[in-house]
Structures are given as C-alpha cells and as structure tokens.
Design a protein around this nucleic acid. Structure first.
Length: 574
DNA sequence: CTAGGGTTAG
C-alpha cells in the first residue's frame, strides 16, 4: 500500500519535508507522469515561506512534457504574487493564453491578483472588465489591488459596484480604510456591514481594532473584545496583538497586559506590541522586564523590538539601561543599529540633559544624520533651553528639510521661550516669506461611541457655543487656583492680542471642555491629539484634573499622559 | 483551487 501522497503533501508546511516527499516521488517514478502531483506540490510550496520551489516545479512539469491545467496556474500565479516574480508570472500568463486556459474563472482571478500585486493595476482591471466569467473573488482581488496601491477612491467605487459582496469584500475595504488612515470610514463601513447582516470574522476584526487604536475609540474596541468572547472566536496571535495595540493606544495598557498574559501563543510581534505599548505609557521598567522575559523565552528580538525597548528607556528617562540595550544589539544579536536606533539614543541623551553627549553621538554616527536625528537633538535643546546648540542644529535641519514647518516652529518657540523676541520675529518673517504652513493641531474625543474632532480654533462643532461657555467657566475656576496662561509657546504667527485667545482654543482644550459637558461627574475623559501637547495645555489639564476631580488621559503624538489629582503620569517629562 | 489581517523613534 503506498501512502496517500496528496494528503501528505497538503498537510506539509515545511519546505524541507516537501522536498523529501518530492525526492521520494521522483525516485519512485510517480512524479514524472502526473500533472496532479505537480499541482499538489506547487500549491504546497506556495504556502511555505519559500514559494520559489513552486516555480521550479512548474519548470520541471514543462520539461517532463506534461501540460499544465486549470489547477496549475492559480497556484503558480499565487507563488509568483508572493515572491513577487514578475517575469515568471507574465510567462505563465502567456502560456495559459496559448493553452486557452486564461479565461477560466480561477485562472483569471489569479491573474487579476498577480497583476495587482506587481503594480500593473490597469492590466488587472482590464482582465476584470473583459472576463468571460467573474465572481465575487474577482472583485475582491481587484478591490484589494486598489487598496494595495492606496487608491481608496477606485477601491470604493468598485466596492459599491460589486454585485454580491461577501465578508472578504467588506474586510478588504475596511482594511483599506484602516491602513490608509481613514479610520472613521473604516468604522462607518463596519457598522454598515453589520446592518446589512454580514458577520465579521477574525480578519475583519483585526482591521476594526486597528481603526479603533488609531482613533482612540476605546468603547468600540471594548465592544469588539466582547464580541470575540460572546461569539467564541478564538483569540489568535493576530487578534491578540491587535487587542493589545488597541488597548495600549486607547490609554488602557493594563487591559492590554491582561490580553497578553492570556495568550497561549506569543510571537515576536505580540511581545513587541506590548513592550511598545508600555513604553508609550512611561512604564519603562515593566517594558524592559518583559523584554528580558522575552529573551529568556527564546524569542529573538529584531530591530523593531529594539526600537520598542529603546523607546521604553526614552519615555522613562532610563539613560544607562538604554545605552546597555543599544550596546547589546550588535554585541549579542549581531543587529547593526539603523538610523532609527541612533535617533532613539540621541533623543534619550538629549532629553535627559546630556546635550554634549547627544551632539557627540550625532557627530560620530556611521551614517549621515537625517532630519529626524537633528529633530531629536532639537527637541532636547527645546526642553533644556539650549539656544546655542539649537541654532547649530537648525542650520542642518533647514538644509535637509527647507519646506518643513516643524523646524521653524521649534526655533521660534525656543527663541520665544528664552525671551529673544526679535529673533523669534525674524523666524516668523522667514516662515511667511517661504509660505511655510504649520500643521494644525487636532484632537479627537469619543463620546457614546461617536468620535468628535476639533481643530485648533475650531468653531464648526454643533455645540461650539456651549463648549466656549464651558471653557470660560473652566478658566475662571482655574484662575482662582492661581492659573496664569503661559503664552511662551504660542507661535508668533498670531497677532499679539489674539495670543491668549488662540491658546484657549488649542484643540485639546476644546475637546476637554466638550468632554466635561458630555460626560457625567467622575467619568474619565480621554482625548487623542495629533501633535505634542504644549506646555500651557499640559499645565491646564493637570489643574482641571484636580479642580474637577477627573481622570484625563491624553494621547499625544508619541506617548500618553494620565492626568490625575493635579499631576501627570509623565512626571512633566515629554 | 482564486480574494481580506498585527508592531516602528521625532
């Protein structure tokens, strides 16, 4: 009795085992005459991390004088898409055409997928439009092709025109929005999907969680977690990682830790996500503890995991630990630090007041420092009010990024903060002359499952009158506590008399005022901001947390601030 | 058989 080779092959996930079976089949003379066995092997190899063997088997099939059939091409093209191998895919197409197999539904679908992966999106579209036969898979391949190229408009138009959508269609479009940063659209589409009676699966929910993480939409994220539980969906490494990231980015890193501890299988990505999450919350020591636990478990960190560990040191001011980790990267793991790692170190040193060391670090780097490196040094200058070094850094920055607003804003702020108003005015003039635009501050707040957005100085919110009235009340109560607005960090492109007003309309203040009128006493307020929190806002929020007895969580561009009883979890270090 | 998924300093 010979074993059931096709079944054996299908169960195989390791390329080595596959090659063993293949050698056995060849020796027994079974492979040379069977298209079916070739197809089975091509499919199996296309599922391994080394799909190149599929191409070799296809070549062997042709050499044996066998004719590929409608089962051969989908697997082969899948391998070509994965590698990706453009010339081999094109020649496969030509061959299928010659054999008259290209109009077969599955072959054509695989071709659509292949062309969209190798960037020939117009060719893929032609195959869809001129197909003899299409099904929902054809549309799905094409939609994800548009998503891959970032063309969400075309993806959406095709999505709207897809006659019989299935869960994959919805997931593809939702993940497109989530990846493209259109998280509100992703969540909107997700609720429409359910309204139309489709049940999301784990893949859909991974994208939904990513959108929640991006928006800081904790209520919806929690809903997804509950959905997983009540529907008995197994928390895979993918889902677990998404949940951890969602909780961390929504200010609940503790819940993320619970998910992490409950995961049976933990891969590098899961570890990296929880370590980075803890780092964002300033929980540097816990993050480093997990990092060494990970090493003990035999999980080998990669360059990104090291970014997480270095971030942990950065956000918690752990200079010595950071230096040790940076050192162990190349010493113990043979990972050559990239410019990103140097950036972390510069930030770590500079922000802790070691400006000379940071500068020395930059000057002795093995690669040319980029704008991000100089930017990290610049942030340190701002923090420690070192005008001289800042001026030196700015020269490099302006050379590298003449159109970026960040440089000018930082410089103007440093001048203003150290009382050099003439210099600050010069920078303002330079900015106007060059037409540099400042990124507007933007804050998000989720109330009752709806995400509200505020821009700096925004008056478009339907309840803006109530919000401004509330802000006036807040300011009066804070003044009784001795609060004086700190105008130092207000950019000087605003007319003098408007300064205080502009400060009062920083987006996070509008969002918090709205939060106070839209939630009950004692409920935590959570806000998400696109830029760094300014010094005045940080001070004000600390006072609000005390005067109104509220916990306020602000997610900044880089980290979290948990305000409680008049102080912040970042210990004023950010 | 063919289509959809998670981490990254400033």
């Amino acid at each position: 009795m010979s074993p059931d080779f096709p079944a054996l092959i299908s169960r195989c996930t390791h390329p080595r085992q596959l090659h063993q079976i293949q050698a056995h089949l060849t020796a027994a003379g079974l492979l040379v005459s069977s298209v079916f066995l070739h197809n089975t092997l091509i499919r199996a190899h296309a599922r391994t991390p080394f799909p190149h063997s599929s191409l070799a088997l296809y070549a062997q099939l042709l050499r044996s004088g066998l004719l590929p059939d409608t089962h051969t091409f989908p697997f082969l093209l899948k391998a070509c898409s994965l590698i990706p191998a453009r010339p081999q895919g094109l020649s496969a197409h030509a061959h299928a055409l010659k054999l008259g197999l290209d109009s077969h539904l599955f072959v054509n679908n695989a071709l659509i997928h292949f062309y969209s992966v190798v960037g020939a999106i117009a060719d893929a579209r032609r195959l869809l439009d001129h197909a003899r036969d299409v099904d929902v898979v054809s549309y799905n391949s094409m939609i994800s092709g548009y998503v891959r190229t970032g063309d969400l408009g075309r993806a959406r138009r095709l999505f709207d025109g897809t006659p019989a959508r299935n869960v994959v269609t919805w997931s593809a479009m939702i993940s497109g929005y989530a990846q493209g940063g259109c998280s509100k659209e992703a969540l909107g589409l997700f609720s429409r999907m359910q309204a139309e009676g489709f049940k999301p699966d784990d893949t859909t929910l991974v994208s939904v969680l990513a959108a929640c993480a991006h928006l800081g939409a904790l209520e919806q994220g929690k809903w997804v977690h509950g959905y997983l539980r009540s529907n008995g969906i197994k928390i895979s490494v993918f889902l677990g990682t998404s949940l951890i990231d969602m909780y961390a980015k929504c200010g609940k890193v503790e819940l993320g830790l619970e998910v992490f501890n409950g995961m049976q299988e933990k891969n590098l990505l899961a570890w990296t996500t929880i370590i980075t999450g803890l780092a964002m919350h300033g929980r540097g020591l816990k993050a480093l503890k997990l990092f060494s636990e990970m090493e003990k478990c035999g999980v080998v960190p990669d360059d990104i995991a090291f970014i997480g560990a270095l971030c942990a040191c950065m956000h918690a001011g752990l200079v010595n630990e950071g230096c040790k980790i940076f050192d162990s990267m190349s010493r113990h793991y043979g990972i050559r630090p990239k410019i990103e790692h140097y950036g972390c170190m510069v930030d770590l040193l500079a922000r802790n007041g070691l400006l000379h060391e940071a500068r020395h670090f930059v000057e002795s780097m093995p690669m040319e420092p980029d704008a991000l490196i100089w930017g990290a040094l610049m942030a340190g200058c701002r923090f420690h009010r070192s005008v001289e070094l800042a001026e030196h850094v700015v020269k490099h920055l302006i050379q590298l990024e003449p159109d970026s607003s960040g440089v000018y804003v930082l410089l103007a702020n440093i001048y203003a903060a150290s009382g050099r108003h003439d210099d600050a005015r010069k920078v303002r003039f330079l900015m106007k002359k060059k037409g540099v635009q400042k990124t507007p501050g933007c804050s998000l707040i989720e109330i009752g499952g709806t995400v509200h957005q505020f821009l700096v100085g925004d008056t478009t919110h339907p309840q803006i009158k109530d919000i401004l009235m509330k802000w006036e009340e807040i300011e009066n109560r804070l003044r009784l506590e001795g609060y004086v607005p700190d105008k130092k960090e207000v950019l000087l492109d605003i007319d003098e008399e408007d300064k205080e007003d502009a400060l009062a309309r920083h987006s996070e203040k509008l969002a918090i005022a709205f939060g106070l009128i839209s939630t009950v006493d004692g409920m935590a307020i959570r806000v998400l901001k696109n830029l760094r929190v300014c010094g005045d806002c940080h001070h004000v929020i600390k006072l609000i947390s005390k005067v109104y007895d509220r916990e306020i969580v602000v997610r900044d561009r880089t980290r979290f601030h948990l305000f409680k009883g008049g102080s912040c979890s970042c210990k004023d270090y950010w």
